[in-house]
Design a protein around this nucleic acid. Structure first.
Length: 367
DNA sequence: AAAAGCAGCAACCGCCGACTT
DNA sequence: TAAGTCGGCGGTTGCTGCTTT
């Protein structure tokens, strides 16, 4: 075990707070191209003035292609409650059972919604149990759980003490429950996040899905678009898969030399992105394809606003009053950019990389 | 209409374990 | 074996927007 560990980065030299769109773009573009073998080195190589941890968190919790956004379904909530009962505050383990959901998101949902709900439910049941002569903490706990855990054995002994439902201690039956959950959950979901080569392999499987969809778009469109990755019609899987072939020596991009990225944001592209968002509600989506007409299939084009909404909850979050100012919730104006410096992304602009930028231009997560 | 309180959530922080040197 | 590095995890914070007074 190491001691006297140096801080992960010089806090005075890194930017903190909400991520700007240009930072997101840099991170996405870099990871698309080179992957993320070394988070510590990544910010410098990508031209980001961020801590490596911050980059990792941003990627995992927000930018990763398979992150599912939007409200949790009832099923997901029930799963979280059940898993939390079994595992305690093992958010990452719980997240691994919920494809597309991150530990941070689940943690937030638990702390803001589910915990309260469970407390309310429990107190309700407790007061009901008070009328019963043999009521006890464990029995009320059990009864409070039954509606959620329909597959629980009603007579199984509850050794859990009051409070364990909400704290770190999983029940003594954790192992068994975990095993049961393994079986149950593996039948319910494709577990993407447990794949050690997470992005590459999971994406390749999605890639094959998309290939399949091209053969039978009409039948598959809905299913495809319902998948967490479905919006990636213009995603460049090829370059993602290039992660394994990344060069040994990565270039370092000087900070504030992101002219091209800023162009994406500041000039026509981002402008059209904004305006298109408004137009989408007024015109057929086919008129609002952003530089992707030749790439994105019609069916995907007409679906993508819904897809965005499903995936990122963006469309639904646009306030009526702000529709003409489609800007991210945490959008902030980036630092002054020296446009006299050029940010040479030529090596990214392979034909495949064009698709990357299509993806980026469609990127709606800055909500 | 304004202020206060609350809720939701993105991001940060510090610790830990695995791995490398 | 000890020191160092890194990724990952869970707890916490603080900002933002919404609701209530």
């Amino acid at each position: 075990m190491g001691r006297g560990r140096a801080p992960c980065c010089d806090k005075s030299q890194v930017k903190r707070g909400p991520w700007s769109p240009s930072e997101d773009l840099k991170l996405i573009a870099f990871i698309q191209k080179y992957g993320h073998e070394n988070w510590r080195a990544l910010p410098k190589q990508a031209g980001l003035l961020r801590c490596g941890k911050s980059c990792r968190l941003r990627w995992i919790n927000y930018l990763r292609p398979d992150v599912k956004r939007g409200s949790f379904t009832l099923e997901e909530e029930e799963t979280i409650i059940r898993l939390h009962k079994a595992l305690g505050n093992k958010w990452s383990k719980i997240a691994s059972r919920l494809p597309g959901r991150t530990d941070n998101e689940i943690k937030n949902v638990w702390n803001t919604h589910l915990k309260k709900r469970s407390v309310a439910k429990k107190s309700l049941n407790s007061s009901a149990d008070e009328s019963k002569p043999d009521s006890s903490i464990t029995s009320s706990f059990s009864s409070s759980s039954e509606s959620f855990f329909s597959n629980e054995r009603p007579n199984s002994p509850k050794t859990t003490t009051l409070g364990s439902e909400f704290n770190d201690q999983p029940s003594q039956e954790t192992d068994k429950i975990e095993q049961d959950l393994e079986k149950q959950v593996s039948n319910e979901f494709i577990i993407i996040t447990e794949n050690p080569k997470e992005s590459s392999v999971s994406l390749s499987s999605i890639e094959s899905n998309i290939a399949t969809s091209s053969q039978d778009v009409a039948c598959k469109a809905e299913q495809l678009l319902a998948s967490p990755l479905s919006y990636l019609g213009s995603y460049d899987f090829g370059s993602i898969l290039e992660e394994v072939d990344k060069p040994n020596h990565l270039f370092e991009i000087p900070w504030e030399s992101d002219y091209d990225f800023c162009k994406l944001l500041d000039d026509d592209n981002f402008g059209s992105f904004q305006s298109n968002e408004v137009q989408l509600s007024e015109f057929p989506a086919s008129q609002n394809v952003i530089l992707e007409e030749e790439i994105v299939q019609d069916v995907k084009v007409t679906q993508w606003p819904h897809d965005f909404e499903n995936k990122f909850g963006v469309v639904g979050e646009i306030k009526e009053s702000n529709k003409d100012h489609f800007l991210p919730k945490n959008y902030e104006v980036g630092p002054e950019i020296d446009h006299t410096q050029t940010f040479d992304l030529d090596d990214m602009r392979t034909p495949e990389a064009e698709l990357d930028f299509g993806y980026i231009q469609l990127w709606p997560s800055w909500s």
